[in-house]
Computed example of a mutant assay.
Amino acid sequence: MAKDPRATFTIRTVDQLTIEGEKSFRHVGLYADLKDVLARAKYPFRVLPEASEGRLDRALLLNLTFWSADSGGDILTRDEIDADVVCHAAWHHLAARAFGGTGEKPSVDSLFLGEAIASAFDVYLVGRLLGHSPDASFLETQVPAMADATDAAGMSEEDFEAMLQSIADDPDRAFEDLRQLLVDATTKLFACRTAEEGYAALTSFDGHRFAALLHRYELSNWVLYARAYAGNQGDDARVRTVDKTLRAHEASLDWLTENWVLPAIA
Rank of each mutant, 00 (worst) to 15 (best):
D4F: 07
A7F: 07
A7S: 15
T8G: 14
T10C: 01
T10I: 06
R12N: 07
T13K: 10
T13W: 00
D15N: 14
T18A: 13
G21W: 08
G21L: 06
S24I: 01
V28I: 15
Y31Q: 09
A32P: 07
D33M: 12
L34N: 05
D36W: 02
P44R: 09
R46W: 11
S52P: 01
A59K: 09
L61H: 10
N63T: 00
T65E: 11
S68A: 13
A69P: 00
A69W: 13
D70M: 04
S71P: 04
S71D: 15
D74H: 10
L76P: 07
T77A: 03
A83F: 03
V86C: 08
C87A: 06
C87H: 07
R97L: 08
F99V: 03
G101W: 08
G101K: 07
T102Y: 13
G103C: 10
K105N: 05
K105R: 14
D109M: 05
D109C: 01
S110D: 11
L113I: 08
A116M: 03
A116E: 04
A116F: 06
A118T: 03
A118E: 00
A118M: 04
A120V: 04
F121I: 00
D122H: 15
D122F: 12
V123Y: 10
G131F: 08
P134L: 02
F138V: 04
F138E: 05
E140L: 11
V143P: 06
A147H: 14
D148A: 12
A149D: 01
T150I: 01
D151T: 15
G154T: 01
M155I: 02
E157Y: 09
D159N: 14
D159C: 01
F160Q: 04
F160P: 07
F160T: 06
F160E: 02
L164P: 06
S166F: 03
A168L: 05
A168D: 04
D169K: 11
D169L: 07
D170C: 02
P171C: 07
P171F: 00
E176Q: 15
E176G: 12
L178I: 00
V183W: 13
D184A: 15
K188L: 11
K188R: 15
L189C: 04
C192G: 08
R193Q: 14
R193H: 14
T194C: 06
T194H: 08
F205G: 03
F210Q: 01
R216D: 00
R216H: 05
R216K: 12
E218Y: 15
L219P: 06
L224Y: 11
A226L: 06
A226M: 05
A228R: 14
A230I: 01
G231N: 06
N232W: 04
Q233F: 04
Q233N: 13
D235M: 13
D236P: 04
D236L: 00
T241L: 11
D243Y: 15
T245M: 13
H249L: 00
A251Y: 13
S252V: 00
L253H: 05
L253I: 04
N259T: 12
V261T: 09
P263M: 06
P263E: 07
A266K: 14
